[in-house]
Design a protein around this nucleic acid. Structure first.
Length: 726
DNA sequence: GACAGTCCTGTTTTT
DNA sequence: CAGGACTGTC
């Protein structure tokens, strides 16, 4: 058999992984080492050489994008095509299972997937209904708590509240669960947990899938949470073989339940598993790689992997110490312009930041020089209010019990159903243990609503029924159009956006277009089209703006950049407190994750990496002076080049000082910085550990041997310098 | 029910 | 500072 097309252009390590004999494998694949390639080639190898039928293969990823890419590449590479394989995200696959076995999963056939926004709204409702103060129990926090529990595989019954707060949280969890179950709603974490429980509770079903999927392939294995790992393990059973690809150095989702430890668990749970490493990097210049390697070496407990390249050293990393965030943006954009002037393309430049809020200054600067750009990670198409309103109508058409949808549109556009009518409805529904829709029907037949409210409510109920009837046999796009017209939503948004730049009606039109082009995925071919479309909308919220193929500078968070690469990467805002973020400094273990995030950022760059920080940054309306990130000091000096020489200081000192440059632009008032020894009349002698703000707001944190660390406002504290720092 | 004024709070994000 | 949530008035 000729398998050369599967192995030809692979390096020895990649080849070894792709053509390994059947069994369990853990492939530790460094950044830029061709891991997706190996995964796809492995799929092809399994089908062509090991004669595994397509339907025996299950491949999971974390993002729709990755899944789409894998699907596409697999269908091209595999001779007999990829039809029959299950390739998708964990959530997508879980959804598929639940759709196929909705009865066994104790779900209504028309169950709907809700996104985090719906989840929070629903929770707000539950918290109110429990008579709790939503200041004390913010819906966001409750959502976080519940998702966290579900990620760990915990139902309320598994929890042992230690204190009143935990107890209340559990109550909220219970109430939320009941509400979801009644309304036929499933949130993202629930998809995973529910399908895991489904397999656990139905041995016959489990056996069926275990026998079917003899080969399980997992991408980004380091990002699996407990339920996902449990799911994999369960599905593998005694016979299934797992091919897991991951990189412990790129584990950046610990904060949402992912556990790198699963890599170790895997080796423990599958003792026959072999570990393979892909360490040759094809992406970055040697200098960039050296920086990444040196940085990540500071993390303890790594599985051990050293990326290397036989490529050229390349340009040194540029470091720019900006005066403030405006200067930073100005400089970075200037460099981007230079790159383009030298023949580069705008789309080859990426600006990466720790938090999305940082994009603004760069956007301003880009607008000023009229460079086209694109910001990733804002509100996505299916998350827009007008789109969600429309979808809520559609949801009600498929499932009247969908309380979240009901609440959303019962009075949108306004039709005279006010808060007190709604309150009566909710009360009725709660008393009867039923849904709002049902409550409304009861209220209409037997209620004591004032005539006006009653008529308004009847109007709504009739509207939904009428729409359900009139759209039954229409094409999806026509259904949506019909809903938009008859419900008055289109007119509502047309009236609202008159005179505004915001083109909400354009989005509504776009929704109709999207629907007209919608083709259900292979896995959803058997579903009613509308149900499939709604699931698609929730699971794949769509990219931000329209897919402009334009040549744009790319702006995104570091998290969003994972898996991507760019010739020029600008890593901005590299300041203590910002990156690593303040909150990561407070919790143990988080700093390592921040470092991995930095590692991810650095390894996105192919040719040139520019890093920058601002000595002063306006944040939340206050000027803060920041110190350069500790991560900078972890990069070997010889691969980095400071672009603007600092006033009278050499580099290592420049990293801990903000005095030189600051003196030029503002008051450089107190001369205090980290390391300065000061005396306080009450606390005695101490060492400055942090400086914040300027002028009248300036504060310093001083560590005193007796009193501990204190924040002192300079204007009041009358500190005396004992010995300057450095 | 619409609108204006006030309060408050600000990571990362996919699904 | 700025966007969102909430309150109070007409």
């Amino acid at each position: 058999m000729d398998v050369s097309h599967l192995l030809d252009d692979l390096n020895p390590a990649q080849r070894a992984a792709v053509s390994a004999p059947r069994g369990h494998y853990l492939v530790l694949a460094g950044a830029g080492s061709g891991k997706t390639r190996v995964l796809v080639h492995r799929i092809a190898w399994l089908t062509e050489v090991e004669q595994i039928p397509a339907h025996g293969i299950l491949a999971v990823t974390f993002t729709n994008k990755a899944a789409g890419e894998m699907r596409q590449r697999a269908s091209r590479l595999v001779q007999h095509g990829s039809r029959g394989m299950w390739i998708g995200t964990f959530h997508g696959i879980a959804h598929r299972l639940l759709r196929l076995h909705w009865q066994d999963a104790r779900l209504p056939q028309s169950f709907q997937v809700i996104d985090s926004d719906d989840q929070i709204r629903l929770l707000r409702r539950q918290i109110k209904d429990l008579g709790l103060d939503d200041k004390q129990f913010p819906p966001r926090q409750a959502a976080w708590y519940i998702n966290h529990c579900k990620d760990e595989g915990k139902r309320p019954a598994h929890l042992q509240p230690q204190n009143p707060t935990d107890n209340t949280m559990r109550d909220i969890y219970v109430a939320y669960e009941t509400a979801c179950q009644r309304a036929g709603l499933v949130d993202f974490a629930e998809l995973l947990l529910r399908s895991h429980e489904l397999l656990l509770a139905q041995p016959a079903l489990l056996l069926h899938y275990q026998q079917r999927f003899g080969q399980l392939l997992v991408d980004e294995f380091q990002d699996t949470n407990a339920v996902q790992y449990g799911f994999l393990r369960l599905l593998a059973g005694r016979t299934g073989e797992i091919f897991a690809v991951g990189d412990d150095d790129q584990a950046i989702y610990g904060w949402r339940g992912a556990k790198v430890e699963h890599v170790q668990h895997f080796l423990h749970d599958f003792p026959s598993a072999h570990t393979l490493k892909l360490e040759q990097n094809y992406r970055s210049s040697a200098n960039i790689l050296a920086a990444a390697n040196a940085l990540i070496a500071n993390n303890p407990g790594r599985l051990g992997k050293q990326l290397w390249t036989d490529g050229e050293a390349g340009a040194q990393i540029e470091l720019y110490a900006a005066y403030n965030e405006i200067d930073e943006a100005r400089y970075i954009i200037e460099r981007v312009q230079q790159w383009i002037a030298a023949g580069g393309r705008a789309q080859d430049c990426a600006l990466l930041y720790r938090s999305n809020a940082q994009s603004r200054n760069f956007e301003d600067a880009l607008i000023q020089v009229s460079l086209p750009y694109r910001v990733y990670g804002g509100l996505r198409f299916f998350e827009r209010a007008e789109i969600k309103d429309t979808l809520a109508y559609l949801r009600l058409l498929t499932n009247r019990d969908d309380d979240a949808a009901f609440e959303r549109v019962v009075n949108t556009p306004t039709r005279g159903i006010g808060e007190r009518t709604l309150e009566a409805l909710r009360l009725r529904a709660r008393q009867e243990g039923t849904t709002l829709w049902h409550g409304a029907l009861l209220e209409l037949t037997a209620g004591e609503l004032p005539a006006r409210a009653r008529n308004a409510l009847r109007g709504f109920v009739e509207l939904i029924e009428k729409l359900a009837n009139s759209t039954r046999d229409l094409e999806l796009a026509e259904q949506i159009d019909q809903v938009l017209q008859v419900s008055g939503l289109h007119a509502h948004y047309a009236a609202e956006s008159r005179g505004t730049l915001e083109a909400r009606t354009d989005n509504l039109d776009e929704l109709v277009t999207v629907a007209s082009r919608y083709v259900p995925a292979e896995s959803e071919e058997n579903l009613p089209e509308l149900v499939a479309f709604l699931a698609y909308a929730s699971l794949e919220a769509g990219e931000g703006q329209s897919e402009a193929g334009e040549d744009c500078v790319q702006l995104m968070s570091l998290h969003a950049a994972k898996g991507l690469e760019f010739p020029l990467v600008c890593l901005v805002g590299i300041e203590e407190g910002l990156f690593p973020s303040q909150r990561s400094l407070d919790e143990s273990g988080r700093l390592e994750e921040e470092r991995r995030l930095a590692y991810v950022g650095i390894t996105r760059a192919r040719e040139l990496l520019i890093v920058s920080y601002a000595e002063t940054r306006r944040l939340h309306g206050m000027d803060l002076s920041g110190r350069p990130s500790r991560f900078l000091a972890e990069i070997p000096p010889d691969v980095i080049r400071e672009v603007r020489p600092r006033v009278n200081t050499s580099r290592p000192q420049a990293f801990t000082s903000q005095r030189g440059a600051r003196a030029q632009i503002d008051d450089a008032p107190h001369g205090l910085r980290a390391g300065t020894r000061v005396r306080h009349m009450n606390f005695g002698e101490g060492v400055v550990v942090d400086v914040e703000g300027s002028g009248a707001h300036a504060r310093v944190q001083v560590k005193f041997p007796e009193a501990g660390a204190k924040w002192l406002v300079l204007a009041y504290a009358r500190l005396e310098v004992v010995r300057p720092a450095g």
